[in-house]
Design a protein around this nucleic acid. Structure first.
Lengths: 159, 159
DNA sequence: TATTGTTATACTCTATAACTATA
DNA sequence: TATAGTTATAGAGTATAACAATA
């Protein structure tokens, strides 16, 4: 059956592959990202950490006493956008803003015990979520994907 | 110089690789996506098509007389969200909402000559943008990336 | 009853600009 | 003059729920 016969208002047999859209990395990147972040949120649940809040907590755990400006740069957002994130983490008692003696402008971010525990649990949940979501990919494929995504990210460093 | 000596409020020598964050596909996906979509917008400029508007136009050009519901499903957004997109494309005279004889509920989307022309120009600009952005990747790497991203997208079909 | 297009609404994420207090 | 944190604000993008018209 020629496609032209069923093209109008039919749609059921439309092959998404024949749009030039499907050939673009950007489009596929967005669709994949939407799926992963939706599943991330579903995994961590209603009161759970959002992707960006988890990212911030994760860096604070790895780099205690990091400043907000450094953290913002590291996770790729503006300083102003970080305020609400740190507010949320501080309200949850997952970290504290600690004054720094030598420079009274900055406030170092220090994870609490509860923060480290919550981080550990989140990491476990997210590992399970990614294992589930990428179950049809081999370990090598996942590694290749990481390498290629980091290659795109490397473009950002030069800005 | 051991890292512990420079850990506090220094930050200049923090290696982003040593956060567990960097090991997650989701995080790398997001960072890469942010870079690509920002460059997309910069490429198409102020009055230019946004990613989602381009996507909609692209599918309309490939599948003239597609309905809004079909289009929404194809590009992975809600019907309600498509209204503003189609409004914008119709205001720009890039497509028209055309009544369908057999079913007066639906309105088929038909690209205009101007719409097809604008689409062609956008495709050329986006190809150049991706060629530039992924200049350090081989053709094979780009192909691999597309395949892996589509593998993630395949998860969505089962919902 | 179900579907199409639509509106109203809210939420998340991000960015810009301007402020303050420090340096 | 410059920087850290902050506030105010606006703009994308998305989703949910409800509605009228039509099937």
């Amino acid at each position: 059956m020629p496609r032209s016969a069923t093209r109008r208002t039919e749609g059921a047999d439309i092959d998404p592959r024949d749009t030039d859209l499907e050939g673009f990395v950007g489009y596929n990147l967005k669709r994949a990202y939407m799926i992963v972040q939706a599943d991330f949120r579903a995994t961590l649940g209603e009161g759970g950490l959002s992707p960006r809040v988890f990212s911030a907590l994760s860096v604070c755990v790895s780099h205690p006493h990091i400043t907000q400006s450094e953290l913002a740069r590291l996770i790729g957002i503006e300083r102003s956008g970080l305020v609400a994130i740190v507010d949320e983490l501080e309200e949850k008692r997952f970290l504290r803003r600690v004054p720094v003696p030598n420079d009274r402008r900055v406030q170092a971010l220090v994870p609490t015990d509860a923060g480290r525990a919550a981080h550990g649990e989140a990491v476990a949940a997210i590992r399970a979520h990614e294992d589930r979501l990428f179950a049809d990919m081999t370990g090598e494929e996942k590694q290749t994907l990481l390498i290629l995504l980091r290659k795109i990210r490397a473009r950002e460093a030069s800005r």
